[in-house]
Write a protein that binds this DNA or RNA. Sequence first.
DNA 1: TTTCTTGCAAACGATTTGCACTTTG
DNA 2: CAAAGTGCAAATCGTTTGCAAGAAA
Lengths: 148, 148
Amino acid sequence: MISRPTELNLLRNQLTEFLRSRHLRKTPERYAILDKAVYLSAHFEVDKLYNALEEEGYHVSRATVYNTLELLCEAGILNRHIFATNQARYELARGSHLHLICRKCGKIREIDDPSLTSRLLTEEYPGFTPEYSSSSVYGLCDDCASSS
Amino acid sequence: MISRPTELNLLRNQLTEFLRSRHLRKTPERYAILDKAVYLSAHFEVDKLYNALEEEGYHVSRATVYNTLELLCEAGILNRHIFATNQARYELARGSHLHLICRKCGKIREIDDPSLTSRLLTEEYPGFTPEYSSSSVYGLCDDCASSS
DNA sequence: TTTCTTGCAAACGATTTGCACTTTG
DNA sequence: CAAAGTGCAAATCGTTTGCAAGAAA
């Protein structure tokens, strides 16, 4: 089990290394957004991260948030997904989740399933280099099932 | 192997049954959209279906297309997915695809994998009733891998 | 000082919504 | 006829873009 502060440091270093390798700049905004992404962990939408930063009095423009999240994907730190809603969600790249998505209310529950992930990523796909995977099971949560 | 005309008839009947059970109306638009969805089969976006109808001189408003596609999902005939782009895609419900998605150019390749689908759907999920599933492997297609 | 980043606001694009007009049952 | 469905255009909302001003290197 990796403790949170150490994990954050690892990811900061990963970002630093990535920025160096691409000759990109180490701006405070990029580290602030990384920190908050780790803090939110699990899944989060862009606005959730944006608002979390605002609440603690740290202002960054939405454009920067969008740019930086894309950068963190490039760096292999985050993965980007879109589920039922038209809203991107990000998660830390090492997560191996299966998503249970209610097609009525859009609620998403995450389930850890490393064996599924490894099955998907160790397969050979001619002409395609896999990086990460995502599985979703759509259906009805109990709340929505009973109210319909 | 089910021949196409028969399959279409089965789905038309399924729609008719669904409409009857909910006391909804059997409009020509609904059947036209179903026909075109079956014809496009595999994955298609809303605009692809809309344009296909326009091209053959059959005009329906976009609103109706959106409404009807949602209806067809309710009827269990189509499934709705959103992948990398912010654009919904629909596929016939019986498909059991694994999607290889290039995170650079967004191209999607489909692979049949019934065993994966059945593994996901036969599992027990407390508090959740599964209906259909979708798995995606993100990475780089050869074109994008070589140009970066 | 050069070039990359940021912030802001305007632009975009897919989807949704409101409402008058049609059509089905 | 009454209720449901359609078409159209305007409204939404997440995301992207253009550009001037600010800050890494």
